[in-house]
Amino acid sequence: MSKRAILHVGVHKTGTTSIQAFAERHRSILRERGIDFYTGVHLPNNHVELHVAAMRPERLSPFKMDNELVVDESYREAVRDKLHAYVNSSDAERIVFSSEGLSYLRYADEMERLKSLIPTSQIEILFYVRDREAFLRSYRREMRRHRLPETIDPDSYAYTADNTWLANFAERIEAFSRSFGAENVAVIDYDRELGAHGNIIPSFLRALKVEDAFDPASWRDLFLNTSDSPN
């Protein structure tokens, strides 16, 4: 059976926590529709090990900083072995991974390492975007809750000046398009979906082509990690 991996890469502050909670809650229904929501190494619903193993060692993320992770080849091999075993043993046609940390990946070598972690060449990227200024306001608040690097260079996840690369969604999308093919990168407008449905979950279900399997009541209580600009 030819399997397809779906990587929900965020970005941050676009409802990722809610999507992950929904997928965890409804694993069995998703399995009935041929979709396997991966169980992570560090966190069951947020598959942080993918970005940790793929990212250049000198680059940091909030998870790497908060957990003081040392990422060496043995760590990367362990993650690769776990993912390969999981995907190869699954009887589902599609395997879904979700981690907003993946959106921090910028460089071709990082994308190639990410590809090497997943034993299928059929990989689809789900990338959410939102209003630039609203994103920056919410993301800056988020960063204040994390341990930050002593020195913050322009390549950092913690660089939140007005000219930050983090708010250049076109550039971030292009990095994935170059490596995975533009035809395999689906871009979803967070603000439009929120305005139309009041929740981000329906857009995720449409991307998976399983919206008919769920009643709106299944997601009405899910909008987690909220501030005045939801996560």
Rank of each mutant, 00 (worst) to 15 (best):
A92I: 05
E93L: 03
R94E: 14
R94K: 14
I95H: 06
I95V: 15
V96A: 12
V96F: 15
V96H: 04
S98C: 07
S98A: 06
E100K: 07
E100P: 05
G101F: 04
L102E: 00
L102N: 14
S103E: 03
S103C: 10
S103L: 05
Y104I: 09
Y104N: 14
L105K: 09
L105Y: 06
R106V: 03
R106L: 11
R106Y: 01
A108S: 13
D109Y: 01
D109R: 12
E110C: 11
E110L: 09
E110T: 09
M111Y: 05
L114N: 06
L114D: 03
L114R: 05
K115T: 02
S116M: 00
S116L: 01
L117I: 02
L117S: 04
L117V: 02
I118Q: 01
P119E: 00
T120F: 06
Q122A: 12
Q122C: 00
Q122R: 15
Q122S: 13
E124A: 11
E124T: 13
I125T: 05
I125S: 03
L126R: 10
F127P: 11
Y128G: 07
V129Y: 06
V129H: 04
D131F: 02
D131W: 03
D131H: 08
R132K: 15
E133L: 07
A134F: 03
A134I: 02
A134P: 00
A134T: 13
A134N: 12
F135S: 10
F135I: 11
L136W: 06
R137N: 07
S138Q: 08
Y139W: 12
R140D: 10
E142F: 15
E142P: 00
M143V: 11
R144K: 10
R145T: 15
R145N: 13
R145C: 06
H146S: 05
H146M: 11
L148N: 14
L148Q: 15
P149M: 05
E150G: 06
E150R: 12
I152H: 10
I152Y: 09
I152Q: 10
D153A: 01
D153W: 04
P154C: 00
P154I: 01
P154G: 01
